[in-house]
Design a protein around this nucleic acid. Structure first.
Lengths: 235, 235
DNA sequence: CGTTATCTTGACCGTCGTCAAACAGGGTGG
DNA sequence: CCACCCTGTTTGACGACGGTCAAGATAACG
């Protein structure tokens, strides 16, 4: 369960054993519960065993921006290990099973085993790359392309984790949340989804999404998976 | 000159010597010259001795988004060291003096000296935090607040590097570039600058900016310097 | 000086936000 | 099993923020 932690980006020889023998506590969290709170010092790192999560920031007048999405198997606060105060919050999107690892244990492990530290570093770098893509998405793309783009990213990442159904996936978020992730309002997200649907680029039933013409959607979104660094070499 | 590389975020004992004895080549680059090109494998890391730089990404229909700004003393491609292919480009904003360090040398040093690797890691984490703030800025703030915010960030970072004049600074970018950084058009950036000016929040003469009421501007921008992690502890 | 990039301003327009109401689904309790 | 409610989705009318286009003004630069 914890083994997916770092294999994503970088191989570790028998560092794996050390990771697997980290102390952890299992916990189940309801949907919409805080795992990290902006402004507080992080004390732990959670690994998503099941369920989804996201990060957010608020403007001082209360507008929310979602910064990233997290799918099962991902570690959630790998940068909080090394930063003294959280600059954003992390919340569950759905009910989720977590493995909670104390921050100190991870720090110690990283200090001892350079392979582990490196794997964490790579993972953080890839996340940073995703933030950069989101700056572009929210800053320079049309509403339609933004929505298409986030669907593409989600689909490709699910697929990379081996979680994608053969012909679609369940999108675990409301249109309100989709709006906060794309810098739009829920109403306008709805308009775009309907538009993509009536143009035949996606099919929906409830929150289950299907892509009849993946390549056309990809084009609309201007999506290129380069930024996900999926084939990043092991170090 | 290279010593500023990592001291920003984390102390290194006599790792400093190792950093200072890295091989490097000095080079002067004109304004608007590419240092890293999206899609290519990075081969080097440049440290900005003088001059300014920025990172950018393009949509497939040619719109540009600026992702971050870099001021003298900062290392420019500290994540390219560990990623196999660049997901964005890095360019100079002005004429700049650079110290070019081969990628392999830095990798080797990081592999040998865990303190150096850690310092690079922290630096990358802080950059990631800045990307997150930019997602928020571009996604959820009004045009006026976006422009105010980028001015605040630039001022505070200059000040942290000891480069701020007592009462203002030279903004080394055109309004077009300011637009690409904030997700706006140059025309609208101009409108916002004039508005901020006539409201007395900034003073300008040419590209030199002054802040008569720093706290009011800060409020307008919704700026909090937490995300810059300026007082991040040494590890 | 002339040439070019940048800044500035105005008029107009479109994308997207706002407000509000109707509608669907999924639980819960009677 | 059905009323009820709550959250989320859908739709329409309207308005505003910011984009577009174009022209003129101001530097910088050779």
């Amino acid at each position: 369960m914890v083994r997916k932690l770092a294999t994503h980006a970088s191989l570790s020889p028998a560092d794996r054993k050390a990771i697997l023998s980290l102390p952890f506590a299992r916990r189940t969290a309801d949907a919409a519960s805080y795992l990290v709170r902006e402004g507080e010092p992080p004390t732990q790192c959670a690994v998503l065993l099941t369920g989804y999560a996201y990060r957010q920031k608020l403007t001082d007048d209360g507008h929310r921006q979602i910064l990233s999405l997290h799918i099962p198997g991902e570690a959630l606060d790998l940068q909080g290990i090394f930063l003294d105060v959280a600059d954003h919050s992390v919340l569950t999107l759905t009910r989720a099973d977590l493995a909670i690892i104390p921050r100190a244990a991870l720090r110690d492990l990283a200090a001892e085993r350079i392979g582990v530290a490196h794997a964490i570093h790579i993972s953080n770098l890839i996340e940073a790359s995703i933030f950069r893509e989101w700056v572009l998405n929210v800053g320079r793309r049309s509403a339609r392309a933004r929505v298409a783009h986030i669907l593409c990213e989600f689909a490709v990442r699910l697929d990379a984790q081996g979680l994608a159904g053969p012909n679609g996936f369940e999108l675990p978020m409301t249109q309100e949340q989709l709006g906060d992730a794309t810098g739009l309002t829920a109403v306008h997200v709805n308009r775009m989804l309907k538009e993509l649907q009536s143009d035949g680029l996606i099919q929906r039933q409830r929150r289950f999404i299907r892509f009849p013409h993946w390549d056309r959607l990809r084009d609309e979104a201007g999506f290129s998976e380069r930024y996900l660094h999926l084939d990043q070499q092991a170090a």
